[in-house]
Measured scan of single mutants.
Amino acid sequence: MATVKFKYKGEEKEVDISKIKKVWRVGKMISFTWDEGGGKTGRGAVSEKDAPKELLQMLEKQ
């Protein structure tokens, strides 16, 4: 499965696309949330040019 790689608060992170729940556009950035388990929700953002095609497809479906 595809993953999204991004930096959050200076830390490199990687999230499996299948865990992503919500995707939206903020200017030229793609923001998203995912389920971290245990009732926690993670947040992240990646530039439109660095976003994997699967993430962009999720954005178009909404």
Rank of each mutant, 00 (worst) to 15 (best):
M1P: 09
M1K: 14
M1Y: 10
M1L: 15
M1R: 04
M1N: 14
A2K: 09
A2Y: 03
A2V: 13
A2W: 02
T3D: 01
T3V: 07
T3E: 01
T3L: 04
T3C: 03
T3R: 06
V4Y: 01
V4D: 00
V4P: 01
K5L: 02
K5A: 02
K5C: 02
F6R: 00
F6E: 01
F6I: 10
K7R: 11
K7T: 12
Y8D: 15
Y8V: 04
Y8L: 02
Y8H: 10
Y8P: 01
Y8F: 04
K9I: 02
K9Q: 15
K9V: 02
K9M: 14
K9P: 01
K9A: 05
K9Y: 14
G10A: 02
G10D: 06
G10Y: 01
G10V: 01
G10L: 01
E11F: 06
E11G: 10
E11K: 08
E11W: 03
E12M: 14
E12Y: 11
E12T: 08
E12V: 13
E12D: 10
E12I: 13
K13R: 11
K13I: 14
E14M: 03
E14G: 01
E14T: 08
E14K: 03
E14Q: 03
V15A: 02
V15G: 01
V15I: 11
V15L: 06
V15C: 04
D16A: 14
D16F: 07
D16K: 07
D16N: 07
D16G: 06
I17G: 02
I17D: 01
S18Q: 10
S18A: 12
S18W: 07
S18P: 04
S18M: 11
S18Y: 04
K19W: 10
K19G: 09
K19T: 14
K19L: 14
K19S: 10
K19N: 14
K19H: 13
I20F: 05
K21R: 08
K21A: 14
K21N: 08
K21E: 13
K21I: 15
K22F: 14
K22W: 15
K22N: 11
K22P: 02
V23Q: 03
V23A: 10
V23L: 07
V23E: 00
W24F: 09
W24Q: 14
W24A: 06
W24R: 04
R25L: 13
R25P: 08
V26F: 07
V26R: 09
V26Q: 07
V26S: 13
G27Q: 12
G27C: 15
G27H: 08
G27V: 07
G27T: 11
G27D: 15
K28S: 07
K28T: 10
K28A: 04
K28F: 05
M29L: 12
M29E: 13
M29K: 09
M29C: 15
M29N: 12
M29P: 02
M29T: 05
I30W: 02
I30P: 00
I30Y: 09
I30T: 02
I30Q: 00
I30H: 01
I30G: 00
I30N: 00
S31F: 13
S31I: 07
S31K: 06
S31Y: 08
S31D: 13
S31L: 05
S31P: 04
S31C: 12
F32T: 01
F32L: 06
F32K: 00
F32S: 01
F32Y: 00
T33Y: 12
T33M: 08
T33I: 11
T33D: 09
T33K: 15
T33C: 15
W34Q: 00
D35M: 05
D35W: 07
D35L: 07
E36D: 09
E36T: 08
G37F: 10
G37I: 08
G37Y: 09
G37E: 09
G37A: 06
G38C: 15
G38Y: 03
G38M: 06
G38D: 10
G38S: 12
G38P: 07
G38R: 08
G38K: 04
G38N: 09
G39T: 07
G39E: 15
G39I: 09
G39R: 08
G39P: 15
G39H: 06
K40M: 11
K40S: 12
K40Q: 15
K40G: 13
K40W: 05
K40N: 09
T41R: 07
T41W: 12
T41L: 09
T41F: 08
T41M: 15
T41Q: 09
T41E: 15
G42N: 05
G42C: 15
G42E: 09
G42D: 12
G42M: 10
R43K: 13
R43D: 03
G44Q: 03
G44F: 14
G44E: 02
G44C: 07
G44M: 05
A45K: 03
A45S: 07
A45N: 14
A45M: 11
V46M: 09
V46F: 02
V46Q: 03
V46N: 02
S47Q: 09
S47A: 14
S47I: 14
S47T: 08
S47Y: 09
S47V: 07
E48M: 05
E48Q: 09
E48F: 04
E48I: 04
E48R: 06
K49V: 13
K49H: 05
K49T: 11
K49Y: 08
K49Q: 08
K49A: 14
D50N: 06
D50G: 10
D50F: 09
A51T: 13
A51D: 02
A51I: 07
A51W: 10
A51H: 02
A51C: 14
P52Q: 03
P52M: 03
P52I: 07
P52F: 02
K53I: 13
K53L: 13
K53A: 03
K53Y: 10
K53M: 11
K53D: 05
K53P: 12
E54L: 05
E54T: 04
L55K: 00
L55Q: 00
L55Y: 00
L55T: 01
L55G: 00
L55P: 00
L55A: 01
L56V: 12
L56S: 11
L56A: 07
L56E: 06
L56H: 08
Q57T: 06
Q57K: 09
Q57W: 06
Q57L: 04
Q57R: 05
Q57F: 07
Q57H: 07
Q57C: 10
Q57I: 11
M58W: 04
M58L: 11
M58C: 14
M58R: 05
M58S: 06
L59H: 06
L59I: 08
L59S: 13
E60L: 07
E60G: 13
E60M: 08
E60H: 06
K61H: 13
K61S: 13
K61Y: 14
K61D: 12
Q62G: 10
Q62W: 03
Q62K: 14
Q62I: 10
